[in-house]
């Protein structure tokens, strides 16, 4: 070239915060338009409606005892499906199947992109690996928070329908109770979603990570807690596990009513300790994911 270059490259300087913001916006767009994500949300709402309202209402009307309400009086059964019972009903299913579904969500959000090659494309757009992971987990967090709000409105709607059908006077749940339930639900679902995100990143694909994650959340932790009743060291170990913390936090809110309480809802550790354990996971899981993604070769 003979001409003197007049344009000297000035590399784009973007703050880390700006990069995380850009990544979050991008991830929200692609998550929002992903059918699989809406299927997951739909499954959660269906399960919430069935186990929280439909089965209990049918049991109440028929006067029979279903597996989930054995030993409860008709009055207390009705109370759980009234608006005042929404905070408890909202979170009751979260430690077990709500968490499992969010784990699936986290795993597909993180894992699918390795097979599609979309992470490869994303990593060459500008934002650093750290920013992209933080952006993706932030988008996931926003989606989980939205899920809880939608579920709250959904449950309130169902309970109002039941109240109207039964001619019951509507007693609204306390604001404090509702806020506490929403907060606890957020911690629990978010923790499982981030755990899924880490697993999806580790396995570089959704299949293995979903499989392993579900076996862990649904089977292994329960088995370990069972062994823990016999062996004290195992019990101590289970007290720091994510499922125990999630179950204990919800258990501290809804109460653990003997052998017929919802699976996964436990009282292994105190509510306060459960909150701190979950908060620790909410920090550790994304940090571990960032460390993993930063040092990884992407093909």
């Amino acid at each position: 070239m003979t001409t003197v270059m007049t344009t000297v490259t000035t590399p784009v300087k973007t703050s880390t915060l700006g990069q995380v913001g850009a990544s979050t916006g991008a991830e929200l767009l692609r998550i929002r338009k992903w059918p699989a994500v809406w299927v997951t949300l739909g499954a959660w709402l269906t399960l919430s409606a069935l186990f929280g309202y439909v089965f209990n209402y049918v049991a109440y009307k028929s006067g029979s005892n279903s597996f989930s309400n054995e030993g409860e009086s008709a009055a207390s059964l009705l109370a759980t499906i009234m608006p005042v019972g929404v905070p408890n009903t909202l979170v009751d299913g979260m430690p077990m199947f709500g968490g499992a579904l969010m784990l699936v969500l986290g795993a597909i959000v993180a894992g699918s992109g390795y097979g599609w090659g979309s992470w490869k494309t994303v990593f060459t757009q500008g934002p650093s690996r750290t920013s992209t992971v933080l952006g993706s987990t932030t988008a996931l967090a926003v989606f989980v928070a939205g899920t809880i709000v939608v579920t709250l409105v959904f449950d309130l709607g169902l309970s109002l329908v039941v109240a109207a059908a039964e001619g019951q006077h509507v007693v609204w749940p306390g604001l404090g109770d509702t806020a506490q339930a929403v907060g606890a639900g957020f911690l629990v679902l978010e923790m499982w979603a981030f755990a899924g995100f880490l697993l999806g990143t580790l396995a570089r694909g959704p299949a293995l990570s979903v499989g392993l994650g579900l076996v862990w959340a649904l089977v292994i932790e329960n088995l370990l807690r069972g062994v823990g009743t016999l062996l004290a060291p195992v019990a101590t170990f289970t007290h720091v596990l994510p499922g125990t913390a999630a179950g204990s936090l919800i258990g501290s809110l809804v109460g653990v009513g003997g052998p017929d309480s919802t699976p996964g809802v436990v009282d292994a550790i105190s509510g306060d300790r459960a909150v701190w354990t979950l908060l620790a996971y909410l920090v550790l899981l994304p940090v571990a994911t960032v460390l993993l993604v930063r040092r990884r070769d992407v093909n």
């Binding site: 973007t14 979309s118 494309t121 060459t124």
Partner: peptide, 17 residues
């Protein structure tokens, strides 16, 4: 990041959603 933001790339097949 300052560099990749100024580079457009297609590496070994397109990777999209």
């Amino acid at each position: 990041p300052e560099v990749t933001a100024r580079v457009g790339a297609l590496i070994e097949g397109p990777g999209f959603y």
